[in-house]
Amino acid sequence: MSQPKEIFVRLDRCVGCHTCEIACAVEHSQSKTLFSAISEHPVPKYRLYVEWVPPDQKLSILCRHCEDAPCVHACISGAISRTPEGVVITDEDKCIGCWTCVMVCPYGVIGRHLETHKAYRCDRCPDLDVPACVSACPTNALVYRTVEEFSVDRRQVAATEMLAGKGG
């Protein structure tokens, strides 16, 4: 079985421009265009968040779609499930807005929509081949890869650094 892709964040790349947030909200709007999306109701919501770690570090945080997701276990109305592709989703019809998922999520990436009274989160952009945030990221801080692909890159970097250390 082929490995599913994940949205990975390259920790040293984020410049804090918030472009991923804009792209996410537009992709989750009715019109899918920025100029119209900003006037829509319900207000389109972005589902990833650029966090700032003082003094100068920035990082985009989003749902990890955990294999053993605390939110799936915690949801008392059975609204949260996992698709065959491995995406953790919230069924809006079943969500009762108790915010239990918010309490158990270790990343704090589940939002509350004040107009729909439902919980929302990253859905990996089911209509797109590559999620909107990944396509939008101007520095390629966000990448859409399998764990294996991502790890190979990490190993390459680690190996290079180790050998450089040996030489020096």
């Binding site: 472009t19 804009i22 920025l34 100029f35 101007p138």
Partner: peptide, 9 residues
Amino acid sequence: QPQCGFGEL
């Protein structure tokens, strides 16, 4: 692409 939405607005 995509160009900065903040700039566009």
